[in-house]
């Protein structure tokens, strides 16, 4: 056991020495791997933030019933009596057209323009909040309420969130495809790096085989080198994405607080980080294994 550990320790040291021995070339390689990994990773983080935002919006589904401009108090009372005790409804609120106009003036700073209109263009409305996870029931209510007398238009506020979710699903597929392609690129980069290393150490490998080195002994430092390349590339990608999220958060300012409740955008958590390290390290290992297995066959003696 201690012998195996010692051999692994030596192979690891050898891999580190090789990586440090050609610092500039190794650094450029690692940078390419890091940037390649950071593209799908950044998309993953962006989609995560958008997904959080849409899920947040969809968690409390809201239905707005806009009344006809000519709807009077009696019509409004009739609608209210239909809303009362409806199973799909958590709560509701009547928003009079005058109140809506005041809110509009305050919220958007459009008081000047609104004053210019001369009349209030907004209708009375009921804002209906569904029960948690009651989006489907509220969807049914929307269809029903659209036919009620006095209702001009029924608008379900979660509809856009669902559309965003659909876009996110598509985006996730793009991330998987892009990630797979760049994963293949990582394997190819590692394959080529290891190939060059093997060719540069041809004499050493041949002599080692002549004096009793097993293929496992020869393969080991290259496998560590490939894995290290993947892991360091993953660290670079992680750093790039975290830095980019920080910059984006600062640049977005107030808009960031619209996306995330506390104004802090979602970053890579510990699970994401571990998954990234395992994936990148694994792909680096695989690229190295492929390269060393294919090239060792050409070496004499067998």
């Amino acid at each position: 056991m201690s012998r195996l550990l010692r051999e692994h320790g030596l192979a690891f040291q050898d891999a580190l020495r090789r990586l440090g021995g050609q610092f500039v070339a190794a650094f450029l390689n690692l940078l390419v791997i890091g940037i390649a990994l950071s593209l799908p990773l950044a998309m993953y983080v962006v989609l995560g933030n958008v997904s959080d935002f849409s899920r947040q919006a969809a968690a409390e589904p809201q239905l707005t019933l806009f009344l006809r401009p000519d709807a009077d108090a009696t019509v409004a009372r009739n609608i209210e009596s239909r809303l009362k005790g409806h199973a799909a409804i958590g709560r509701y609120q009547f928003v009079a057209k005058a109140v809506a106009l005041e809110d509009l003036k305050k919220a958007a700073g459009l008081s000047g323009i609104v004053e210019e209109l001369g009349r209030n263009p907004l209708p009375d409305a009921y804002v209906v909040t569904g029960r948690p996870d009651g989006a489907e029931a509220l969807e049914a209510l929307r269809s029903e309420a659209a036919t009620w007398p006095g209702v001009d238009h029924a608008q379900l506020d979660t509809l856009w969130a669902r559309q965003v979710e659909a876009v996110i699903r598509g985006g996730r597929t793009v991330v998987v495809i892009l990630g797979s392609l760049l994963g293949v690129a990582l394997v190819a980069i590692t394959f080529n790096t290891i190939r060059l290393q093997i060719l540069g150490r041809r004499e050493e490998i041949e002599v080692s085989k002549l004096i009793g080195a097993t293929n496992a002994f020869i393969r080991r430092p290259f496998l560590y080198l490939g894995t290290l390349q993947g892991l360091i590339g993953a660290c670079i990608a992680w750093g790039l994405v975290m830095f980019a999220v920080g910059v984006l958060e600062r640049e977005l300012g107030v808009a960031a607080s619209l996306i995330a409740q506390d104004g802090v955008l979602r970053r890579l958590d510990i699970r994401d980080t571990i998954a990234l390290a395992v994936l990148a390290g694994g792909l680096g290992w695989f690229g190295a294994w492929l390269s060393v297995t294919l090239h060792l066959r050409r070496f004499e003696p067998v």
């Binding site: 004499e203 050493e204 004096i211 009793g212 097993t214 293929n215 002994f217 067998v302």
Partner: peptide, 22 residues
């Protein structure tokens, strides 16, 4: 077996005409 060959070579000492030093 080709896998057993390295262990056999470990019991040999090989001296090469061209030295084969690294």
């Amino acid at each position: 077996r080709s896998g057993a060959l390295p262990y056999l070579r470990r019991n040999l000492g090989l001296v090469f005409q061209d030295h084969k030093l690294l």
